[in-house]
């Protein structure tokens, strides 16, 4: 592996300024993550369709490519070639920026996730806090979309989303304090290394609270209130079409990937698995997709809550459970 010392020496001998080196490394890494994201979204959309079809006694996409594998590419071409509809009274800047903000927030959240030993873009000391905090900026994108598109349905959807995401942020953050207490670090790689026993067995309450709060955080059923098609048409992205709409879709799937990756890192032993060390990323991927499958399973089985019931669940059930989890963990560690 290339060390930073070697890189610096290379730069010095060839007369490359250090900022160029930094910038090119950052660019390369983010491109790599972007490629992973793109691939991941393609796989996820295909998987979502096939899982949904499986649950609903149908075949799903079958015609484009082998068993419909190229369906998403066909859809992407369709969405790109669509007219970019811009509502008459919409706020031009806010309306245009919203999908980007949401996408970036979800995308940047992936930067600290370790997919193998030393396979991480930036292993921050406070990686856990970063992984919780940065993706929640996405709510700003949703509010911007709702506010900017000058549509009452979108407005209502974004308001709901703001209320929901802010209230589920709290139990979600509290549910992982137990993990930090046991691992003794907020560094994600350190947490994975500390998991000789998966934390899902040591922190069952924390795991459940975290998973439920994550579902609410990424607006999946049964908490998909911001985009309830039965009352709010499509919620915050009602007015979006074509490429901008696709970006929202992209952001949602990346957020789902990030949330399930975080679940795997915190509770399911990260890259740990039988076999040689080079299989670590594979194990990680398998676990991530297992969590995503559970999310899809929930999505295609359950109805959705009403807004007041969502709030009740967040504040009256999940928050006390998370606090109880901290208490129990603390007592056990003291004994």
């Amino acid at each position: 592996m290339l060390t930073s010392g070697q890189l610096l020496e290379f730069a010095n001998t060839n007369g490359i300024p250090i900022w160029v080196l930094d910038a090119s490394i950052a660019l390369l890494l983010s491109l790599a993550v972007f490629a992973i994201c793109g691939l991941g979204v393609i796989v996820l959309v295909y998987m979502e369709r096939k899982v949904a079809a499986d649950f609903q006694l149908r075949w799903g996409p079958m015609h484009v490519g082998w068993r419909g594998t190229l369906q998403l590419i066909a859809d992407a071409i369709k969405l790109i070639s669509k007219e970019d509809i811009f509502p008459k009274n919409a706020d031009p800047w806010i309306f245009r920026l919203a999908p980007t903000v949401m996408f970036l927030a979800a995308f940047v959240g992936l930067m600290v996730i370790p997919i193998g030993p030393k396979l991480v873009v930036q292993d921050l000391n406070i990686g856990l806090i970063y992984a919780l905090a940065i993706p929640s900026i996405g709510v700003a994108g949703i509010i911007m979309a709702g506010f900017g598109s000058y549509n009452k349905y979108a407005m209502l959807g974004s308001m709901r989303s703001a209320a929901q995401m802010v209230s589920y942020e709290v139990p979600r953050a509290l549910s992982i304090i137990g993990v930090v207490m046991i691992a003794g670090s907020a560094k994600l790689s350190a947490i994975v290394n500390a998991q000789s026993v998966w934390y899902v067995f040591l922190q069952p309450i924390g795991f459940v609270v975290f998973l439920v709060a994550s579902l609410a955080e990424i607006n999946r059923v049964p908490f998909d209130l911001p985009e309830t098609e039965s009352e709010l048409v499509n919620g915050y992205h009602t007015e979006y079409s074509g490429m901008r709409f696709m970006f929202f879709l992209f952001a949602e799937y990346i957020a789902m990937m990030a949330a399930s990756a975080l679940t795997v890192v915190l509770f399911l032993g990260g890259w740990h698995g039988p076999g040689p060390a080079y299989l670590a990323p594979l194990w990680f991927l398998i676990k991530v997709f297992a969590v995503i499958y559970v999310m899809m399973w929930v999505r295609w089985t359950l109805p959705r809550f009403r807004i007041d019931q969502v709030m009740d669940l967040g504040w009256k059930v999940l928050l006390p459970l998370a606090l109880l989890n901290i208490l129990i963990t603390g007592i056990i560690m003291l004994l």
Binding site: F55, Q56, S230, L302, R304
Partner: peptide
């Protein structure tokens, strides 16, 4: 009724 409550899957069974 299921669809409006957000449950998409029962629709397919009933339609079957």
């Amino acid at each position: 009724a299921g669809l409006e409550a957000g449950a998409v899957t029962p629709l397919q069974y009933y339609f079957d």
